[in-house]
Design a protein around this nucleic acid. Structure first.
Length: 533
RNA sequence: GGUCCGAUAGCUCAGUCGGUAGAGCAAGUGGCUUUUAACCACUGGGUCGCAGGUUCGAGUCCUGCUCGGAUCACCA
């Protein structure tokens, strides 16, 4: 395989050539074009971001005062000079600020915005100066003459540092009057379209970095920006962790590479360990490891991490997906449903600005109430004429019921035959004490009263193994060590697995799982050497 | 894997009945310089996804392929 040249990786065209020329000219002015640091000092007195500066009390106050003044003005009217001057006094008293960020689209002439990804702050440079540039030779020495020359060489998307004082413009926007400018890094590639961002979903996912840049440079957008989607995702995940930690759980990490892929009905990825010369499988579920820990005395235990399933890709399926799985000793399936509702409501509210209702496509989903209905009752309700027996119950459910379950609904009483790790319902031995949570027709969670009788568990595995021999590739594999663990005695316990990606889809009004995973699986790029032709 | 839709300038997109390849943004040059996405003037920029076919002539019609999206099947 030949190593591609830089110019093959970064396709050369008029845009990149112009930027390369700009970079050469900047190098002639400042020296090293990739300096190692820029000290950001904002008015709040700490190493600060633009966002922190904008939220700093004095700045925020000036902005809100100016907003009031502007609200009282007519179309095209400018804020009165005396009021502006008074606010400028307050800003000037803050002294010099040093901010850094990416250059957004130049508006006109000397004005441009710098963004730290979250917020923007306008900066202003005056040709008549004084405008110095900070040299990048490590000495922090200043070239008093060439600030304007550097300013003119900058491109949309370049990263710069700016030092100056805050002021309010004639139109009432708080800005930095730049006195010193430092070049920090070059955007060799043109920025995404300022109005549309990156429109092609393939390119959004493939070039996620550019998609995220577009989130902060784009002028208008519908729905959440990509950045906001992942901020919301992060908020949800951190809130779920917090909730469990506060409830006395321990977070653990169990093997991702396992000698046996079991604990869920799924096809695994296979790899090979060279030193041991054995096959290893990317885990399809952490379930059996976590229950070993319940045996060991971790009565409340959770893992929030990736699982891997070697199956088809779809709007709702990525080969690796994030699952929150947890177990509570001495609890049964009903207690688990109660607990899960409280936890999900807490996390949804925190990630959704306090609200429990979410717009998803044409539906409004209300996380305020979760229904519970048995699988048989659900089939009777949505497919009244359909005769159900052991063999067709799941098919009937999938075909006739699933897509009706828009509002959060626990389907309970699953056939035992398809629930090899869950306890049977004592009053109805053909059924398991198991639920799945459906929202918008999508399976979001799966939980049950955990089977803790080692002999029965062994028999269930044996049944699975014979299913396997009959050709069901996804039937579970007997895990002998798990049987041994259960034989030490596991307390009664309830467990649940929650599909985090799908929950995030619901909270962000995204209809493809690939839009809530930063780097979803894609086919290799053509000519990247990823595939032999 | 089946079906439907799409691929045109760096980006977002037009392109009528088959008849010289278009716009906005971005880029370049010059002007303006307290502006709020889009200031003014000029300029450069195309293997119309790939390969065939029909035709005097194909971005446009036909066939195959590649890649993507939607949807069905399968799955969580």
């Amino acid at each position: 395989m030949s190593i591609p040249s830089f110019n093959e990786i970064i396709e050369q065209n008029d845009q990149t050539e112009a930027r390369a020329a700009s970079l050469d000219a900047i190098a002639a002015l400042v020296g090293n074009v990739y300096p190692n640091k820029f000290s950001r000092t904002a008015a709040s007195g700490v190493e600060d971001t633009i966002t922190a500066l904008k939220h700093f009390a004095t700045v925020a106050d000036v902005e809100s005062r100016m907003a009031e003044i502007k609200a009282s003005l007519g179309e095209g009217e400018r804020p009165p000079a005396d009021k502006k001057d008074a606010l400028n006094e307050k800003l000037k008293a803050l002294g010099t600020v040093r901010i850094a960020g990416r250059l957004t689209t130049p508006t006109r002439g000397n004005f441009v915005h710098l963004t730290d990804g979250v917020n923007k702050l306008q900066v202003y440079c005056n040709k008549k100066g004084p405008l110095a540039l900070i040299k990048n030779d490590g000495s922090d020495s200043v070239d008093e003459e060439n600030g304007w020359a550097l300013w003119q060489l900058l491109d949309h998307g370049d990263l710069i540092g700016a030092e100056g004082y805050l002021f309010v413009t004639n139109t009432g926007e708080v800005s930095v009057h730049v006195e010193k400018l430092q070049f920090l890094a070059k955007a060799m590639l043109p920025m995404p379209d300022k109005m549309h961002g990156i429109a092609d979903p393939e390119l959004q996912r493939r070039f996620r970095y550019a998609d995220l840049i577009a989130s902060t440079l784009q002028i208008e957008h519908e729905g959440l920006t990509t950045r906001e989607v992942f901020e919301r995702r992060a908020k949800l995940v951190s809130r779920l962790r917090r909730f469990l930690d506060d409830a006395g759980f321990i977070e653990v990490e169990t093997p991702m590479l396992t000698p046996k892929a079991t604990g869920a009905a799924a096809k695994p990825f296979e790899t090979h360990h060279n030193a041991l010369d054995i096959p290893l499988y990317a885990r399809v579920a952490p379930e059996l490891y976590l229950k070993r820990l319940v045996v060991g005395g971790f009565e409340k235990v959770y893992e929030l991490n990736r699982n891997f399933r070697n199956e088809g890709l779809s709007q709702r399926h990525n080969p690796e997906f994030t699952m929150l799985e947890f177990y509570i000793a001495y609890m049964d399936v009903n207690g688990m449903m109660d607990f899960a509702v409280t936890m999900i409501q807490d996390a949804v509210a925190k990630a959704n600005n306090g609200g429990l209702t979410v717009k998803y496509g044409d539906n409004e989903i209300d996380f305020g109430k979760f229904e519970r209905i048995s699988m048989l009752d659900a089939i009777a309700k949505y497919a009244p004429g359909v005769e159900v027996d052991d063999n067709n119950i799941i098919t009937a459910f999938d075909e006739h019921v699933e897509h009706h379950l828009i509002q959060p609904t626990f389907i309970v009483d699953y056939p035992k035959s398809i629930s090899p790790l869950s306890k049977a319902d004592p009053s109805n031995p053909n059924f398991a004490e198991r639920f799945e949570l459906f929202i918008n027709g999508m399976e979001v969670a799966n939980g049950f009263s955990e089977l803790n009788d080692p002999k029965e568990q062994y028999e269930r595995f044996v049944d699975q193994m014979s299913e396997r021999e009959r050709g069901d590739e996804e039937a579970m594999i007997l895990d002998e060590d798990y049987i041994r663990a259960l034989s030490y005695g596991m307390p009664p316990a309830a467990g649940i697995g929650i599909g985090i990606d799908r929950l995030v889809m619901l909270l962000t009004n995204k209809h493809s799982i690939r839009d809530v995973i930063l780097f979803p699986h894609m086919r290799p790029e053509k000519g990247s050497g990823g595939v032999e032709e």
